[in-house]
Amino acid sequence: MSAQFAERPCGPPERLRTSAEIRRALPEGMRSEFDKAIGNATLTERAHVLALWSGIAIEAADPSGDEQVRRFQEGRLEAHALEWYQEREGRSW
């Protein structure tokens, strides 16, 4: 029998899966709020809380999304329909 690595579950590799991974990825000022949320979650709520905070940690690591929202609200963000990008690339998805 040969030793082989177990296959990872499907999903993007950058997705934070465990509470420890999420906590490490959060800015220090958000960790106590995360600790409180995960500590108060029931077993059935835990997966939802982890998914929510995983997204928060990813967003906190790249705050450029906030700037894009501000630009959109101010009417300064160039945005197009999917068809515009398809035409530009000469393909359809």
Rank of each mutant, 00 (worst) to 15 (best):
Q68E: 12
R46A: 09
F5D: 15
K36C: 08
F5N: 12
A3T: 03
E89M: 01
R31H: 02
Q68P: 03
E87T: 15
R71L: 12
P63A: 08
G55A: 02
S2G: 06
Q68N: 14
R88F: 09
P9C: 00
A37T: 03
G29F: 03
M30V: 04
P12N: 14
E14D: 12
V49H: 08
L26S: 07
S32P: 04
M1T: 13
F72K: 14
A47T: 14
L16N: 03
V69A: 15
A47L: 10
G90I: 01
A37S: 04
Q73H: 03
P12Q: 14
L26I: 07
P63H: 05
E83L: 02
E7Y: 07
S19F: 11
L82G: 04
M1E: 13
E74N: 12
A60S: 14
R31D: 06
S64A: 12
A25P: 09
I38Y: 04
R24N: 11
F72I: 07
E7Q: 14
R91C: 07
S54P: 11
P63L: 12
E33W: 09
E21N: 05
T42Q: 12
E78G: 05
R70N: 07
Q4H: 10
I38N: 00
I56D: 08
E74D: 11
R24I: 07
I38W: 00
Y85N: 01
K36D: 10
E33C: 11
D62G: 00
F34G: 00
R15W: 01
R91L: 06
A41W: 06
R71D: 09
R17W: 14
R88E: 06
E28M: 01
H80K: 15
R46W: 02
V49A: 12
G90A: 08
D35S: 11
E89C: 03
S92H: 09
A20Q: 15
E78D: 08
R91P: 00
K36G: 02
Y85I: 04
E59Q: 13
R15G: 00
A6M: 02
E14N: 10
E89T: 00
F34R: 00
P27I: 01
E21V: 03
R23I: 01
T18R: 11
A37Y: 00
P9Q: 11
Q86E: 15
R71Y: 02
E21G: 06
E89V: 04
R8L: 09
W84K: 10
I56E: 14
I22S: 03
I38P: 01
P63R: 09
H48I: 08
